[in-house]
């Protein structure tokens, strides 16, 4: 199995560049590592302190080494660079010590990115949350559903940039929905390889 080539969930997708300045840029961000970090019973605060992450719901913590997205009490999705070699999860496990444990998810999640002012309009077609910038600050995190696919949504900046983390098996289907929802605008689709 050692020589099995690493494939990506969006290998079958054709990426296109718009003729004009695009309103929307959709990206498949590759080379990310994911792991789910869970606190041991009663140790959520200790774990958060040790990792330097916030326990507040709906707000991400971004450090140089990782981005932590709160999923539920004492549970975070940790995102780092490095791909699927498992190294990131090992580092997180080491840092968590006996306060928590991390499970490797790099093979199981895909990060898709939507950028551009019209991203609000595109996401409004599927996401049942009010993403109006008046209500939703940078760093906002929510787990919700769009196009029947469960997703973790993270507002990265005010451009706006939204990171949409979906299950790898649903990534292609979700991507097609995303492209379809953006079709009325000028859209670029790209691959960002951070591996």
């Amino acid at each position: 199995m050692a020589n099995t080539p690493i494939r990506n969930p969006l290998d079958a997708v054709t990426f296109t560049t718009a003729e004009y300045q695009p309103d929307i840029v959709l990206s498949d961000v590759r080379g990310k590592s994911f792991c789910q970090l869970m606190a041991r019973r009663g140790k959520a605060d200790e774990l958060a302190q040790r990792m330097g992450i916030s326990t507040a719901p709906g707000q991400s913590t971004v450090t140089e080494a990782y981005t932590a997205l709160p999923l539920s009490p004492g549970q975070w999705l940790m995102i780092g660079d490095g791909g699927r070699d498992g190294e990131f999860t090992q580092t997180i496990t080491g840092q968590a010590g006996d306060a928590g444990y991390a499970s490797e998810q790099s093979h199981a999640r895909t990060l898709l990115r939507i950028q551009g002012l019209l991203a609000y309009d595109v996401l409004a077609k599927g996401v049942r949350l009010d993403l109006d910038p008046l209500h939703v600050p940078v760093g906002f995190v929510a787990q919700t559903v769009a196009a029947q696919v469960g997703l973790t949504l993270h507002k990265v900046d005010d451009q706006p940039t939204f990171d949409l983390i979906v299950y790898a098996g649903f990534a292609e289907s979700f991507w097609h929905w995303l492209v379809d929802a953006s079709e009325e605008y000028t859209v670029d689709t790209t691959v960002i390889d951070q591996g």
Binding site: P57, G58, S72, P73, R128, L129, A142, Q143, T144, V145
Partner: peptide
């Protein structure tokens, strides 16, 4: 209590 007001479909 954790996520805020959400649609019943969730």
């Amino acid at each position: 209590p954790w996520c805020g007001v959400r649609d019943e479909a969730e």
